[in-house]
Every structure is written in C-alpha cells, then in structure tokens.
Design a binder for these strands. Structure first.
Lengths: 193, 193
DNA sequence: GGAATATACGGAACGATGTTCCGTTTGCCA
DNA sequence: TGGCAAACGGAACATCGTTCCGTATATTCC
C-alpha cells in the first residue's frame, strides 16, 4: 500500500522523476476539474489545469476510467471499509445496510456524472465499473448476508444488481427528485413483510 | 386533434407540400435510426436515411427532443390511456399500478438511450422531459391515488418522482442487471407493511 | 563532468458529431 | 406564367476524444 516502486512480480524500473511529479499534478488537476465540471470534464481542461499537454494525460491514464478510479480510489476504499464497522455498531443488520447505502449515495451524489459513467455500458468505462464492483460488492454482500440471515430481507438479493440500481437512481437530477428517498424506497422493497 | 392547419389563435398559413412530405419522411427515418442505433443516432445518419440535408432536420425539429417526442408520441399516449383501463380491470389498485409500470418499463426498455435522455438534466432535453411528464404523470398519479385510497401504499408518494426513478432504473444496462426486477423492488417499497 | 540512451513531453493533426448559415431551388398564388 | 416567400442542401464552424511523432530531458555509464 505504501510502496511505490514495485510492480507485480517483475521489478518495474521505477519511473522518471518528472513523470511521477506529473502524475501527482494530474491527479490534483483532475480532482479540481471533476469538482467544477463533473467527471466528464474535457481532457483539454484537465491538461490545462495541470499545465501539461493532452498526450501526458493519456500516457498516465489511458482511459478516463483510469483517471476517475485514481481520483476516487481512497473514498471508495473508505466506503468499503465502513461496512463491517457499521454492522458492528448498528442495532440491526438492516439498519447497517441502510446506513451504508446512505454513505454510498452521499458519495455518488457529490460527484456529477459519476453515477452516469458507472452505469454506462461503454467499453471505455469497463475499468471503472470493475473497480467499483470489486471493492463495493463484497462490502454490500456482507451486509446483505447478515440481514438475510437475520430474516429481515429476502435472501435472494444480488449485491451487484442492487448497487447498480442504486447507482442508476443517483444518476440524473431533476427539480423535485430526491435520489435518497428513492433509494430508501428500493431498500424498503427488500424487506420481508 | 385531427386538424392540421391551425396554429394557436392566429391562423398558421399551412405548410408547403414538400415540407409536409419531408416531415413525414423524417419521422420514419428517425424511427428507423432510433431502432438501429438508439435515440442518440447521429443527425447525419437520420438525414441520410431520409435523403435530406441536415438543415432540414433542424428546421422541422429544432432539438433532438422534438424529434424524439414526435417519434414516440403515439406510444406515450397509448401508455397514458392504458392507466384507467388497467384500474378498471385489475383486482386491486396496486395490481393496476404494477401492471401499468410494467408497461412503461417495457416501453423504455425497448428504446436504447431513451431513459438516459429522459433523465438528462441537459437543457436540450427539457422538452422531452416535459412531454413525458405532462402525459404520464397524471396517469400514474391516478393509479397512485387509487392505491393510496385503498390503503395499499403510503399516501405521500409523488408520481413525478416515482416515474423519474423508474426511468433511472431503466437507464443503463449490465450483464446481471434486470431493470424490471429493480423496478419491482421499488414499487414493493411503496407498500404499507 | 560529459555524452548516450531511453523515457517522457507537448501539441498539432485527425475523425466524429452537433449546429449554424446562406446561396439555391421550388411550391404556391395571383 | 411570373414573382416571391418558403424550404432545401450541405459547406463551414466549433467542440471533443484520441493518436502520433519530433523534441526535450532525466538517468546512466564512462
């Protein structure tokens, strides 16, 4: 986690100093651009913010998904790690599930275009899709299992599908639309009656 | 509804024959293009299919939303009109609601990109948004009211928000994602327990 | 310290797409 | 039939993602 000059197995020769510097600059620039214009911010804008050419972006982050993942990696990880904690501190598994999904919704709601990108079937976003799924599905499945075992929800619920649905509900904004409430309805629909 | 040469109040002079012909051709071409490539089909493709220049498209349908509305107008109307029928023939209001929403989902699911466009907050799609809302919200509200009155669902449900959520759930496709099931969960969440 | 070399950089260039604009064509009416 | 307003076509412009290659520079080796 802390190491930075080791690749997978075969030793990666270590990148040039300017390359590492640019990568960090680019990450900061992208974060700023995403905040200002959403995750669809034009490549040229990000490059300009970082003071580099567009080629440099593509060299470091071949697809937009790679850049998005790099920018939000820590927040996704934090979200995933919150699941067991919530399960331990909440009254019931269903309460923990609800709280955790709220966390996820809060995360998505503050990133314009992220939910849309997440649910795009474009091949370019497959990496993004995969990253989120790899990290968040196990966390969600854990909560789902606990709630199912406690007899609170129907046992056949698929974590991947649920997260995808939540992502969809968070995509798009409208005057009288509250994604949180709709997600709440969805989670309520999970409950056994 | 059947008249075609009257504007609002001041008499519209009636369009030229070639203009009327092109409009019909364009509608057919757009329908075909939407079917083949989704509602985001390139303007040039539609123009080519119709054998007209791109300028002609913009003259008849200033925004893509106008074109989409024109293409799907009849289906939307049919969907709206199905609501009272379903209410009369279904066992319970909630059953009618479920059936009607299934209808809506089926409609959306067969139009690639429509749900996405519907929930886009882009100003260009405001017309589309408005059209769907104007026609479908009353139909849905009717069913919602009936179900609420029968004590089947929570009475504070907003039709516009619900439809928007259903649209969102239908946007985006993934290997293990079934929009119908998720919509079912959402509607189940409406029920009083 | 001073080349040699691989690495990284910058930005021009290309293709796709939406949108506008204006010279040309054509239906319509007198 | 002549004239004009309506409509047309498609070139032209703007934006954006993506690629590519000549140039610059960090690193290494002597």
């Amino acid at each position: 986690m802390a190491g930075s000059d080791r690749g997978s197995g075969t030793s990666t020769p270590r990148k040039r100093a300017d390359a590492r510097r640019n990568e960090a600059t680019l990450l900061a620039a992208a974060a700023a651009a995403f905040l200002a214009a959403g995750v669809d911010a034009p490549v040229r804008d990000i490059a300009a913010r970082a003071g580099v050419g567009v080629g440099t972006i593509y060299r470091h982050f071949p697809t937009r998904a790679d850049l998005i993942v790099a920018v939000y990696r820590h927040q996704v990880q934090a979200c995933a790690e919150a699941a067991p904690t919530l399960l331990a501190t909440s009254g019931t598994p269903h309460a923990a599930l609800t709280a955790w999904i709220d966390l996820f919704v809060d995360f998505l709601a503050t990133k314009h275009g992220l939910a849309e990108a997440l649910n795009s079937d474009s091949a370019a976003f497959e990496t993004l899709h995969g990253y989120f799924l790899d990290h968040l599905v196990p966390a969600c499945a854990h909560l789902l299992d606990a709630a199912a075992e406690a007899g609170e929800i129907r046992p056949d619920t698929n974590a991947e599908e649920l997260l995808f649905a939540v992502g969809n509900l968070c995509a798009g904004r409208a005057p009288h639309y509250d994604a949180r409430r709709m997600v709440g309805l969805l989670v309520a629909g999970l409950r056994l009656r």
